[in-house]
Design a protein around this nucleic acid. Structure first.
Lengths: 70, 70
DNA sequence: GCCCAGTAGGGTAATTTGGGGG
DNA sequence: GATGTCCAAATTACCCTACTGG
């Protein structure tokens, strides 16, 4: 059981997530709006993202597509 | 296990890789599909490429060092 | 309260994707 | 076999102004 408490979860800012994916911060916002990425809201309305989820979505290890995969 | 920190890896866009190789961006996509080049996907399906791998594939051509990397 | 980099929001260009044919 | 081009649709980047975070 590795259930971490939310308060111990590291949060990332939009620009930090954007840098990891090499996209614009606005694009990360669209992902959150589209439900592709979960987000926490500050009391002022700014979004924060779960580092663990972002790392998971990054895939960690890039993959090479196989030529004969159809 | 040798899990590299892909999240610290600098990523390149398709057009950037295409410019470095002096080919059409579509050609870079074909390289990725053929498994000749590893790639990461954004949540929207766009590909991002590892700068280190691209540099390596460029064949030992000395690259211009950037003055500031922060 | 002021400062200012970052973010939200909305709108418009630019890029990328995938397929097909040369 | 590999590459460049055309097409339509989807995704992303850049523009602005106003507000939040520290």
């Amino acid at each position: 059981m590795n259930v971490h408490h939310a308060e111990t979860e590291t949060l990332l800012t939009p620009s930090e997530v954007a840098s990891l994916f090499r996209v614009d911060p606005k694009t990360v916002t669209r992902w959150a709006k589209a439900g592709k990425l979960s987000s926490i809201r500050t009391l002022g309305g700014h979004r924060r993202y779960l580092e663990s989820e972002v790392r998971d979505l990054l895939g960690g290890v890039p993959q090479q597509q196989r030529p004969e995969d159809s």
